[in-house]
Simulated assay, not measured.
Amino acid sequence: MISRAYKNGEYEQALELIGLARQHPLDTPELVALSLYEGILLYQVGRFVESGDAFEMALLIRPEAKLPVPVSPKIESHFETVRKKAQMDPSTTTPPTGKQKPSSGTSSNCPSGQIIPPGRTLKAQQLWRLAMMEQMLCLRDIRGGEVARSLSEFKTLISQAGSTTEWIRAIQEIDQFAKEYSVYPFNSDWQHVKSLVPEERWELGDEDQDVALPEAPESPDEEPASLFGCRAAVAADCERLMRRLLLLQGQLPGVASENRFTARTELLRLGRKVREAGTREKLNTAERDIDAWQSRWRH
């Protein structure tokens, strides 16, 4: 329906359809496709900055993403400009202040791109699952400390599991961790990357050894399997604000060095505030706080 509305030139209607689609659980390919269509449509209606934000969202999730439909040269150029920006290496990019961008604290230092498993066995599936969970948590700026230790322990459990009892224990512990942090890689993504494993890595019968990955709870009182951990009732607006916060993270190197820690800490708190918001009113409050942050630390 979105594609048809776009082809008919009904851009505002197509944007409304995207908003409706985001009210339902989406897997990664669907989220990428929606963001790409949103970027195209926003450009068509003259909302160029928001168009870039939508394209950047898609490319943060899947750097190799391509536009789903033919577009004008101007939109293609706009999209490729955003791609180049998203691919910039923070360790080699110098901001206007002449200071080096930090090597930590920004989403660009998170694992990105498609994760191809080492095989098609249950062990390969669970190691892929852990890598995906690590990527999702990193994009929320949840890393290090207890989270890193838990992920490392899970990898060891999976690598060493030999008996049925050991497998059950390892998977149950990972399931509990997934529930605690609301990180649920999709079965559809696993089936896709599994199909990309080269044949020389296959093992006899191993395509039957994986298990169905748990899905996010559907209750609105619990966090869904959103990339950013947004509440289901306000997922679309929450993800829009999280995209904005990701862009603001890129401005931190321009803040005076003596103020950068304070600015970053405030930004992380804003991220938690947005993720925890369960109503539009709370999101509106968070957005005003983001405006205030940007005004305070503008450079």
Rank of each mutant, 00 (worst) to 15 (best):
I2S: 05
E10W: 11
I18C: 08
L20S: 13
L20N: 08
Q23W: 03
H24D: 15
H24R: 14
E30Y: 05
L36Y: 13
L36K: 00
E38K: 05
L42N: 01
E50V: 01
F55D: 02
R62A: 11
R62G: 01
K66E: 15
S72L: 07
S72N: 07
F79H: 00
T81W: 14
T81F: 12
R83A: 10
T92N: 15
Q100T: 04
K101T: 12
P102G: 08
G113R: 00
G113E: 03
Q114N: 12
Q114F: 03
G119I: 01
A124I: 04
Q126D: 06
R129D: 07
M133P: 11
E134R: 08
R143M: 06
G144T: 01
E146F: 09
L151A: 07
S152Q: 12
L157G: 08
S159N: 13
E166L: 12
E166W: 05
E166I: 13
R169H: 11
I174R: 06
V183S: 04
Y184R: 03
N187K: 11
S195D: 11
P198I: 13
E200A: 07
R201K: 15
R201T: 03
E203N: 08
E207N: 13
D208L: 15
Q209T: 15
A212H: 11
A216H: 08
S219I: 09
P220I: 10
E222V: 10
E223V: 13
G229L: 02
G229R: 02
C230L: 03
A236E: 09
C238L: 12
L241Q: 07
M242D: 02
R243W: 07
L245W: 09
L246K: 14
Q249Y: 12
Q251P: 00
G254F: 01
E258R: 06
N259K: 14
A263Y: 04
T265G: 08
E266R: 11
E266Q: 15
L268M: 04
E276S: 04
G278D: 12
T279A: 07
E281N: 01
N284Q: 08
T285I: 11
E287H: 08
D289H: 02
